[in-house]
Write a protein that binds this DNA or RNA. Structure first.
Length: 271
DNA sequence: AACGCGCCCTGTCCGC
DNA sequence: TGCGGACAGGGCGCGT
């Protein structure tokens, strides 16, 4: 569900709302969400001070000083801070009562998300194995161009593979390719150096703007207060099958790549 | 090695 | 109205 801008929005909200704070315990209602032993998970979360909350790829990372709580929202996961008295529903996966009378709630209808506790060494190894951050200085035209050389998959599918560049999912892959004027069907290995430069700028631009608008609520996404993201109004192609292109007015087309919907303008994205 | 596919799970919508 | 199929911001593990 959530891509980099949505996760970043939640991380910034949670930072304001719960740093510092203390997690009293973990009430695991849906054990299949926990990677590893749910009992060990709960044991590690007894009276843990939250030192820092950050993002790596699409993961929300709580620094508990003794280790890291890492939350991946999957498609429908939500992390919210609520008053302890507010009711929970059947989709509540894990409840974390806080020492100040509030609670951190993980809720997930489809349960594709996951929560895991890592030791500092385990987390640093895992984080090192992820692709680079698109908003970091490492993400350059040279990097993208070089790495895409040997791939024959479509560039849209390539962008969504988290082993090279993280954070870009189904919505922003389509949006970035539209901004760059590149067809989503073009083989990654045929992207030119100039196109790579445009794509890097487009990815950076669309992710940055989406963060400013607090993410895209297409269906399920909510921020840490339960509010929708406003970038949905700015989407150029995603979910606009048959509607006129905002630039040339030709109808936006939907195709399926790797089992996922892709949206693009056949006129504006010819290369 | 890279790639394509199936699967995890629940809800909603659309066509017959 | 009922039912089957497609589809929904992700990611992992498998076989080729």
């Amino acid at each position: 569900m959530p891509e980099l801008p949505e996760v970043e929005t939640i991380v910034r909200d949670l930072g304001r709302m719960m740093v510092p704070s203390t997690i009293l315990s973990a009430d695991v209602r849906r054990p299949d969400l926990i990677v590893g032993d749910p009992d060990e998970f709960a044991a590690h979360l007894k009276n843990r001070e939250v030192g820092d909350i950050s993002r790596r790829a699409k993961n929300i990372v709580f620094d508990l000083k003794t280790g890291f709580l890492v939350v991946n929202l999957g498609m429908t996961g939500r992390l919210m801070v609520r008053d302890r008295s507010e009711p929970d529903d059947q989709y509540t996966g894990v409840l974390f009562p806080l020492s100040d009378g509030r609670k951190l709630v993980y809720r997930d209808v489809r349960r594709f998300g996951s929560l895991q506790v890592y030791s500092p060494a385990e987390w640093s190894e895992r984080a090192d194995g992820l692709g680079i951050e698109p908003l970091s200085d490492e993400f350059t035209a040279g990097y993208l161009h070089q790495l895409s050389r040997k791939s024959r998959v479509a560039i849209k599918t390539w962008l969504m593979d988290q082993r090279r560049v993280v954070g870009v999912g189904n919505i922003y892959a389509s949006e970035a390719l539209f901004r760059a004027g590149i067809s989503p069907r073009k083989a990654a290995g045929r992207i030119t150096r100039a196109e790579a430069a445009r794509l890097v700028d487009s990815i950076r631009g669309v992710l940055t703007e989406a963060i400013e608008f607090r993410g895209t609520t297409f269906l399920d996404y909510r921020d840490a207060s339960g509010e929708s993201g406003r970038f949905v109004d700015r989407l150029a192609v995603y979910g606009r099958d048959g509607e006129p292109c905002r630039v040339c007015e030709k109808p936006i087309r939907r195709i399926v790549q790797g089992g996922r919907s892709t949206f693009y303008c056949t006129a504006c994205q010819r290369s």
